Amino acid sequence: MMERAIVNTFVGHDVVEPGSYVQMFPYPCYTRDDFLFVIEHMMPLCMVISWVYSVAMTIQHIVAEKEHRLKEVMKTMGLNNAVHWVAWFITGFVQLSISVTALTAILKYGQVLMHSHVLIIWLFLAVYAVATIMFCFLVSVLYSKAKLASACGGIIYFLSYVPYMYVAIREEVAHDKITAFEKCIASLMSTTAFGLGSKYFALYEVAGVGIQWHTFSQSPVEGDDFNLLLAVTMLMVDAVVYGALTWYIEAVHP
């Protein structure tokens, strides 16, 4: 339009030919989905609350075995300590994998995370389940009474979600810039890492593309260095750290 005006000025009359056609650059329409906005904040909290019972019962069963001296009997019979923990891990993972698979089906085919890849959803929840089991192991070596361990384990598990609430409030309410390093430090609590990962699922669903393998290591937020891949990596780091602490504490203070 500016070029046509300049030409008209120079030649002294209106130039009709050739004609010009202007339109907006094609881009998907923005849709505001309040449900996904709620999911971003409530999905991690609901998952933490829903698994409190599983965490408490797992801790109670492990400590009850120790409280009744059954573990000492099995060690006397020649059971290796590593085999004992592997057996508990398999038991816990089989139980939680049922919940993980059912939840994946609900999220994907219940039109909650309809755009995200189903395998990524399952992988994310499965890694979180592994970190949760290792958290149960860590709490179980700190107590010798099953009932007390069960009650305290559930409380500690829920309190580990507090760092995510702090990060979310600072980012969304105070609009502070929180670096990826600070988020990684906060993600040493497995529930916090899970909360941050759930947030990226919701953000990509709002964009209408969902989490895919090519967006697994990217953030939809401008200037954000954290992403779902880092959240999953921190969950695996948490599992290793919890396992190492379990081995150390049990060796030093059995």
Rank of each mutant, 00 (worst) to 15 (best):
Y27P: 04
N80L: 10
A244Y: 13
T233Q: 11
C184R: 06
Y128D: 02
A202N: 02
M134H: 09
Y157A: 06
H68I: 12
K75W: 07
I156Q: 03
S144Q: 10
T104I: 11
E250P: 03
I59W: 02
L148Q: 10
G197H: 06
E171Y: 07
L188V: 03
K75Y: 12
F89D: 06
V237T: 09
V162Q: 01
V118T: 13
V206L: 15
R32A: 10
V237Y: 03
N80F: 10
H84L: 10
A64F: 04
W85R: 02
Q23G: 03
V167S: 12
H117P: 00
G19D: 14
V38D: 07
F201K: 02
H117Y: 11
C29R: 15
Y166F: 14
L36V: 14
M47Y: 02
V94G: 09
S50E: 03
W88I: 10
Y164L: 02
A186M: 07
L70P: 01
L196P: 00
V241M: 09
P163Q: 04
L229P: 00
V240H: 01
R32P: 00
S217W: 15
E182Q: 14
A87P: 03
L79S: 06
S217C: 15
V112W: 00
V173K: 07
N80W: 07
Y204R: 08
M134C: 13
M165A: 14
V232W: 05
L125R: 00
M189F: 15
E172Y: 09
P44W: 02
T246R: 00
H41E: 12
K177F: 14
I49Q: 02
M74W: 05
H253P: 02
V237G: 03
G12A: 08
L123H: 04
L96N: 09
L79K: 04
S140T: 08
Y248V: 15
A186P: 00
M77F: 04
F181T: 15
G154N: 05
N80M: 08
V83L: 14
A102V: 15
V38H: 08
S144G: 09
S54P: 01
P44G: 05
L70C: 13
C46M: 15
V16A: 12
L103F: 13
A105Q: 09
L113S: 04
P28E: 08
Y248C: 12
L235D: 00
S160K: 01
A231Y: 06
H214T: 12
Y21R: 11
A186I: 03
V16D: 06
F158D: 02
R170D: 07
A231R: 04
A149H: 01
M236Y: 07
F181D: 11
A193Y: 05
A102R: 01
C29F: 15
V252H: 14
I211W: 10
A193R: 06
T179K: 05
H61Y: 12
E222F: 13
I133N: 03
D33F: 04
F194N: 01
I120H: 02
C136P: 03
N81M: 10
Y27W: 09
H61I: 10
M42S: 08
V63E: 01
T246W: 01
T192N: 04
N81G: 11
G19L: 14
F124W: 06
F37T: 11
D238G: 12
K108S: 08
S160L: 12
S99T: 14
Y21W: 13
V162N: 01
L142M: 11
A207H: 09
E17G: 07
A193I: 11
V86C: 08
H253F: 15
W247T: 13
A239F: 07
F216V: 06
